[in-house]
Simulated assay, not measured.
Amino acid sequence: MEYRRLGNSGIRVSALSLGGWVTYGGQVGQDSTTKCMEAAWQLGCNFFDTAEGYARGASEVEMGKAIKELGIHRDDVVVSTKIFWGVKGGPNAMGLSRKHLIEGTKASLQRLGMDYVDLLFAHRPDPTVPMEETVRAFNHIIDHGLAFYWGTSEWSASELLEAHRIAKHLGMVGPTMEQPQYNVFARERVEKEYLPIYDTHGLGLTIWSPLASGVLTGKYKFNEPPPPGSRFAVNKDPGLQAIARRSLQTTEAKERLQKVDALAPIAQKIGATLPQLAIAWCLKNPRVSTIITGASRPEQVRDNFGALTVVNKLNDEVVKEIEGVLKNKPKSDPVFRL
């Protein structure tokens, strides 16, 4: 396993990690959660990611139990959770107010069975709350030992810069990391929008959806029902089903699936599976601190983590061939080019 610094912080996370979105606490039960986390741990994974909004808190419960069942020492693992969506109704039960951030964090820790998380994320931006209130709340959480670092997920560059500006003005800690979607089809934010932030604020990335919600596995076909046992077939969450429709039934989906078919021979040529090729492509970006993978079976974990052996096979010639299929490389200001 390779371990990378999280931005300019001192903490190091495994380049490949495991997350609980959709799967743990929802799609599979405790036994499968524990087996997947065990497989990842045995392969050197030290970072596990969850959120209060995953299966209405059940993901936190199952992943916390798994860490205890596996006998993993708390100081040997990096655990993150995310606050925003909440787990119940009510006018103050979600968002980034000081009230929900602090109460939500304490509730998450109770579900995890832990005294602290290493990383705490604002799961989405909240334009209804003053940025200063959010920055102060996260610093309160850190100062009281409930988390070590705070970050964001799916925030714009302007929102991140505002948070850093306010934190600096207050003499407080700004966001250390961001958790954006990043894969061969979703590139603009990571490869272009955030460019002015990496060096100025040392932003670390814990990216999600490297396989574009499973599209890059090659198992889905345009306008056809998802295969039995697949995430789109098994999980009936309304949000995921909306992603399924966008991924399988639109004109853009048809173009993407054609590109997936064209990437398959490239993967085969270098002795990799399609998922390994897609994950290794993300690993090539030095701005990425860790890639959060998902799995419902241990063999999926092992196959995904096999991407570590594929990275070195992505030489200039192979990368050029991949870009020839994608044709979506963002155009950026040369001053900020990676």
Results as ranks from 00 to 15, higher is better:
Asn183Gln: 09
Asn8Val: 00
Glu60Gln: 11
Cys36Phe: 04
Ala107Tyr: 02
Gly10Ala: 08
Arg12Thr: 14
Ala163Thr: 08
Ile83Trp: 05
Ala212Asn: 13
Ala272Lys: 01
Asn315His: 12
Lys35Val: 00
Ser213Met: 13
Gly90Cys: 10
Lys331Arg: 12
Thr105Glu: 07
Leu112Gln: 03
Ser32Val: 00
Lys88Cys: 11
Glu255Gly: 10
Gly145His: 15
Ala157Phe: 09
Tyr194Ala: 02
Ala267Cys: 13
Glu52Gly: 05
Arg12Cys: 09
Gly53Gln: 06
Ser247Tyr: 11
Thr251Val: 12
Pro196Tyr: 01
Phe84Ser: 07
Thr206Ile: 13
Ser289Tyr: 02
Ile141Phe: 05
Asn315Arg: 12
Asn235Ile: 07
Pro130Glu: 07
Gly202Leu: 08
Val318Asp: 14
Leu43Arg: 12
Tyr116Asp: 00
Thr217Asp: 04
Asn223Gly: 10
Gly104Pro: 04
Leu109Arg: 04
Arg187Val: 07
Ser158Glu: 15
Leu120Ile: 09
Gln27Thr: 14
Ile83Gly: 02
Cys45Val: 15
Gly89Lys: 06
Leu170Lys: 15
Asp118Val: 01
Gly113Arg: 05
His201Val: 13
Val13Ile: 15
Pro330Asn: 02
Lys254Ala: 14
Leu120Asn: 03
Gly20Trp: 01
Gly29His: 05
Ala244Arg: 14
Leu283Ala: 09
Ser296Thr: 05
Glu299Val: 07
Leu205Thr: 08
Val87Cys: 10
Gln300Leu: 03
Trp281Ile: 07
Ala39Thr: 02
Glu188Lys: 14
Ile197Pro: 00
Ile291Ala: 11
Met131Tyr: 05
Val184Asn: 06
Leu109Cys: 03
Ile207Phe: 02
Ile266Thr: 09
Thr152His: 06
Pro334Val: 09
His123Phe: 04
Gln241Arg: 08
Thr33Phe: 03
Ser153Cys: 09
Tyr24Gly: 00
Ala122Arg: 01
Leu257Ser: 11
Gly294Thr: 09
His123Arg: 03
Val78Ile: 14
Ile291Tyr: 08
Arg189Phe: 06
Phe48Lys: 03
Ile11Ser: 07
Val28Thr: 02
